[in-house]
């Protein structure tokens, strides 16, 4: 069991994005890091039809003592990690509170309704204003752009997990990430993941 205390117990994290952005992978990696640190972690998620182009959301409950419900109660997120900006707003509306911290990858994925002209995608400034007002602290990253420069846009999810480490709210770091990501991944792909993590950590780093 770890002797590092959490900012809150349970510490509630929502990782959100759009199907295909590697949301599930991100939640697994983060949870596995925390299990290695001795925490009890519950991940709540759904996949299947909900994944096909729709909004996806993983709920992580991190605790030193108990198994928590796979659904975070409304208004009770401590940290929101959004791999897509619209989803940051959607999750804040449901799980936000005056203490929540929010990390947003600013690369939009347009809903079909926006593509067809039936609805409007909020402008960059509107997104920043909404996220800023609904969060105690907010960070806006260009995780997808960074990931493309590393050769694969999917790595945006790992940039975001790196950013979680950069916040220093949780006892996770690059060394732990390397140990977890190395499990079951071909060695050739590990390097890009490590770089993505480091970029994210630096982007949200406080020091």
């Amino acid at each position: 069991m770890t002797n590092r205390t959490l900012p809150r117990d349970p510490y509630n994290i929502v990782i959100t994005g759009v199907g295909g952005q590697g949301n599930v992978m991100a939640s697994r990696v983060l949870a596995n890091m925390l299990v290695r640190r001795g925490y009890r972690v519950t991940i709540g998620e759904t996949f299947g039809m909900s994944q096909r182009g729709g909004s996806v959301m993983s709920h992580l409950r991190v605790s030193q003592k108990a198994v928590w419900s796979p659904q975070i109660p409304k208004g009770r997120a401590d940290l929101i990690v959004a791999i897509e900006p619209l989803e940051a707003i959607r999750v804040l509306i449901e799980y936000g509170n005056p203490g929540v911290k929010t990390l947003v990858n600013m690369r939009p994925i347009y809903p079909v309704g926006v593509i067809t002209g039936e609805s409007d995608y909020p402008e960059d400034g509107q997104i920043r204003a909404a996220v800023g007002e609904l969060s105690a602290e907010a960070w806006f990253l260009d995780a997808t752009a960074e990931a493309i420069s590393l050769g694969n846009p999917i790595l945006g999810n790992i940039v975001m997990i790196g950013a979680v480490a950069g916040l220093a709210e949780l006892p996770i770091d690059g060394e732990l990430f390397a140990a977890v990501i190395g499990e079951g991944m071909p060695a050739g792909r590990v390097e890009a993941n490590l770089r993505a993590f480091a970029i994210g950590a630096a982007a949200a780093g406080k020091g």
Partner: peptide
């Protein structure tokens, strides 16, 4: 901000 995020319809 409740109406800011348009629905994300599922599709192929």
């Amino acid at each position: 901000y409740a109406a800011l995020a348009p629905r994300r319809e599922q599709t192929f």
